[in-house]
Amino acid sequence: MNIFRLIGDLSHLAAIIILLLKIWKSRSCAGISGKSQILFAIVFTTRYLDLLTSFISLYNTCMKVIYIGCAYATVYLIYMKFRATYDGNHDSFRVEFLVVPVGGLAVLINHDFSFLEILWTFSIYLESVAILPQLFMISKTGEAETITTHYLFCLGLYRALYLFNWIWRFYFEGFFDMIAIVAGVVQTVLYCDFFYLYVTKDGKGYRFSI
């Protein structure tokens, strides 16, 4: 564990909780892409199957359980409890265009052709693009609430910090995972445009264009 990892994990946790609280407090999921949240739930589910096979630490287990729990809670709030506020018309990204190629890539490019390994690889690839429906939705409506931009900022920060974590681990622990690194770079790049807007608009709600 290094400082980049720890702050990255906490930033990720903050993003997840910000989104849950935003929906819960406002009793509305307007402006939130349910599709992105379903993708994240799939990401956590397929990656954390190792909860059943290997124990790393209490920290590791707790965080994984919290991530999975929050992901499903978010999906529940969007599609069940507050579904009347869900803006399905604007959440029109075709997720099959992500899931199918990502699934194919996971089968083709992985470290080991085994069931759990392919699911892990799939989750890594899928996470790198899971935010696209959300970014697409914002670009379509042309606006995002301030709290939604904080959510995206924390999520992007988590990814950027993981890149530093991997540089750290390469130098001090001598290992690296090319699949995770390439996917992580792709994911971070997707946030660059957003980061720029977030910083220049001082985190205020903004009009967004591609």
């Binding site: 990892r5 994990d9 990720h12 190792d50 290997s54 790393i56 590791n60 965080m63 994984k64 991530y67 470290h111 892990w120 993981y162 974590n165 681990r169 290992f175 995972d177 995770a180």
Partner: peptide, 10 residues
């Protein structure tokens, strides 16, 4: 080894 990163990172 690649293993540690697999299960350790979130």
């Amino acid at each position: 080894s690649l293993e540690p990163m697999r299960h350790d990172e979130l």
